[in-house]
Computed example of a mutant assay.
Amino acid sequence: MPPRRAVTGRSQEPRQRFAEELRLLRTQRGESLRQLGKALGWDASLFGKMESGRTIGSPEVAEALDHHYGTPGMLLALWELALCDPTQFLEQYRRYMRLEAEAVSLWHYAVSAPPGLLQTAGYAREALAAGGMKGQELDQQVEARTGRRKLLEGDDPPPFRVILSEAVLRTSLREPQAWLEQLEYLAEAAERPNITLHVLPFSAGPHGLMNTAMMFLRMPDGRTVAYTENDVRGELIEENSKVEPLQRTYDALRDLVLPPAESRKFILRMLEEVPCGPSI
């Protein structure tokens, strides 16, 4: 078993340490990424992304690498630490934001909150403040979130399909006027030619994404990446073998939604229930 290195510098961060160990073990073996991929049966690009810290792969990959390098359990243990590293989620989300800005089409499933691309300033402020944000940081994050809406505007905006769980429309803000403005914005967005908005009613019953918000991006090179979020974590998924089953789950969900016209009527009915009344 190769000697373990002292943990110094950035290698104290679990995700970075995992990537460093992978690079060290491969270079000590004198293998190229292509040779490693051929030996283990995965695409060489996966190992390149793991060594650069762009992904940590799966436990199956970590176990295969442990077997390949003769490091029983070491890489799997580092993988588990990297999986729980809170810094990785922020890094993945930042990368997702960069990819979102480049996407040629987008589709989304929202569990309990409108997607960031369709949030008003009032909604974003209350939601972010509920998470403990305040002061200048809160102002900056509200501006950043509402600034994302520009992606769907302009002369040639990308197509955007969004499925809103009924829970999104039932979870109102504390401030009625801010909630009214958010519903009005959703109703207006549903009429734009580049936006297809569906409501998934509670009557649709259980489905494969009940507790997971899901975002897909079609990139200029034709590949699709996914980003999943639940109550405790988010994950950027770029491996095609993992993206495809998620797409199938999303496609199955589409069979349960209301058509666009009925979905907009659903939102308008929600507007009628707001105490101050709709203004559209």
Rank of each mutant, 00 (worst) to 15 (best):
M1N: 02
A77D: 15
T212Q: 15
N240T: 14
V104C: 06
E239W: 03
W79L: 04
P193C: 05
Y93C: 13
K49E: 13
R174N: 11
N230T: 11
R161S: 15
P259S: 06
R23G: 14
S241K: 14
P206A: 00
L46E: 12
K38N: 03
G122A: 14
P245D: 07
H67F: 12
A189I: 07
P176Q: 11
Q136H: 11
G154K: 12
L253K: 02
R26Q: 10
S45Q: 10
P72Q: 03
I280T: 09
E51D: 06
Q119S: 11
T120V: 13
A124Y: 05
E100N: 05
L209W: 09
R17K: 02
S58W: 09
E238Q: 04
E143R: 11
E191T: 09
P3H: 13
Q35A: 15
N240Q: 13
Q136I: 06
Q177D: 15
A129C: 10
L256A: 06
Q140T: 15
D251V: 08
A252Y: 02
Q177T: 15
L173R: 14
H198P: 02
Q247W: 07
M1K: 03
I267Q: 08
P114D: 08
G234Q: 02
R218L: 15
L151F: 09
S112F: 00
L99D: 09
Q28Y: 02
D156T: 08
G154D: 00
A189S: 12
P157M: 11
S52H: 14
C276G: 04
G222I: 05
V104N: 12
Q119F: 02
M214D: 06
M219P: 05
Y69E: 05
A187F: 06
P86D: 10
P86Y: 12
N211A: 14
F266W: 14
T120M: 13
G277I: 08
A82E: 10
R54F: 01
V162H: 12
E63A: 11
P245H: 01
V225C: 08
P193W: 05
F160Y: 14
P3I: 10
L75W: 07
R254P: 00
L253M: 06
G234R: 01
A226E: 05
L22S: 10
A252M: 10
E175M: 04
P59S: 02
S165D: 10
P114N: 05
Y69A: 00
G132F: 02
P259C: 01
Y185G: 13
L183T: 05
V257L: 01
A167S: 07
P201E: 03
G132Y: 00
G41P: 14
H68F: 13
A82Q: 12
A189N: 00
I56K: 10
R254D: 14
E13C: 04
L246M: 07
